[in-house]
Design a protein around this nucleic acid. Structure first.
Lengths: 204, 204
DNA sequence: CTTAACTCGAACACTGATGTTCGCGTTAAG
DNA sequence: CTTAACGCGAACATCAGTGTTCGAGTTAAG
């Protein structure tokens, strides 16, 4: 909640310019295909990407000036998706932050699992900093819970707050990589994560 | 050491072929320069690499067929270095595995910090699997401690052994990235790591 | 001192990928 | 129906990086 009514935001594809319906369709197809392609191959070039999207190479370039822009758009979309899930995952009631965090981890996992390949591919092209910027919103959500947890006493206060966030983030992604490598199943991941992270975040 | 009279076989830079002293020197210079270059820029191409090493491009190629081979060699060297430190870090006495692990983490940190950029760059070129192969030896050392710790009861047995190894590995590297991004100082890192990992590895 | 190993600059060949332009056909919007 | 927007193939223009070849000079090793 508490969503500020920001009428025009930056590089969103919400309401940029009157686009014709077929253009809108193309863009959607490209975004979808890009996610798919990236999710099964690691890296993709623009040519095969256009083919996968059922779209001409020229069309691809008219909508996205370069690969960066495209990957950025795909990431934006993915993060929006993740945000939606995360936002509704946080229980409203007076649940202790510590437990809420566990819930968030459990709920976040499927989304993370879905985009695990994208994360790797996008990181290669966009670089660590840009990647961090993308994760800003979900990070803040976790940060909020951690802060609250520290006040409540359910989460340790002896380590830097940013470090705890990093631990959550990196462990989550480590799990995604393990699944990708076949050393972990998507089903067992969430509980393992909770069982690993809670002790790491608890007061000594 | 029954060394077969087989002068072929690729790989190893141990005792391949009688190399002239200047060749040996070139190779060393290349390896050094490559590590340096990779440690301050993220990525490097062969041309500027040769220049940095004070060596002709041709010479570079005669010693290393391609960039992969070069990065692979640099990694091999780094891991050997790390192994040496790790091996002597493990205290001989009957120290509980749990405490030994803490020691290993503390001792390993400086090495890890030294090679943090290399890790990123090499991963890009070599891929995750090849990277894992390189880390095989140090991983085994950690694995050994974890196994022993489980028997002793100082380390949790409710999660897959491989997962615990991954947690150690990924948290270590997460810390390296944080240092690289300036969000953590190399000095405070080791204690933070121990404080984070021990609770994560302890029985509930 | 003789030989073989090594160095190295310059030039070339090649590849894979990125962007761009042109022109024409197609399609949505009013 | 008219028009502007869009799609798209083909061809072109780069471009960066890789790897190779040649030929001559230099240096270590025995």
């Amino acid at each position: 909640m508490a969503n500020d009514s920001a009428p025009r935001r930056s590089a969103a594809r919400t309401a940029e310019r009157r686009r014709r319906a077929d253009a809108e369709r193309s863009i959607a197809a490209i975004l979808d295909a890009a996610l798919d392609a990236v999710s099964e191959r690691g890296d993709v070039n623009m040519s095969e990407l256009a083919r996968a999207a059922g779209v001409g190479r020229v069309t691809l370039y008219t909508h996205f000036p370069g690969k960066e822009d495209l990957l950025d758009a795909v990431m934006t979309r993915a993060i929006e998706d993740a945000n939606a899930v995360l936002a509704e995952a946080e229980p409203p009631g007076g649940l202790p932050a510590r437990d809420a965090l566990a819930q968030v981890i459990r709920r976040a996992w499927p989304v993370l699992d879905r985009y695990r390949r994208l994360h790797t591919a996008a990181a290669r092209v966009l670089g660590a900093e840009r990647m961090r910027a993308h994760h800003d919103a979900p990070m803040r959500l976790v940060a909020g819970l951690i802060d609250r947890g520290r006040e409540e006493g359910g989460i340790r206060a002896d380590l830097p707050r940013d470090w705890l966030i990093t631990v959550v983030y990196s462990t989550l992604h480590a799990a995604a990589l393990e699944v990708d490598a076949g050393r972990l199943t998507p089903a067992e991941a969430p509980e393992i994560l909770v069982a690993t992270l809670l002790p790491a975040l608890s007061p000594t």
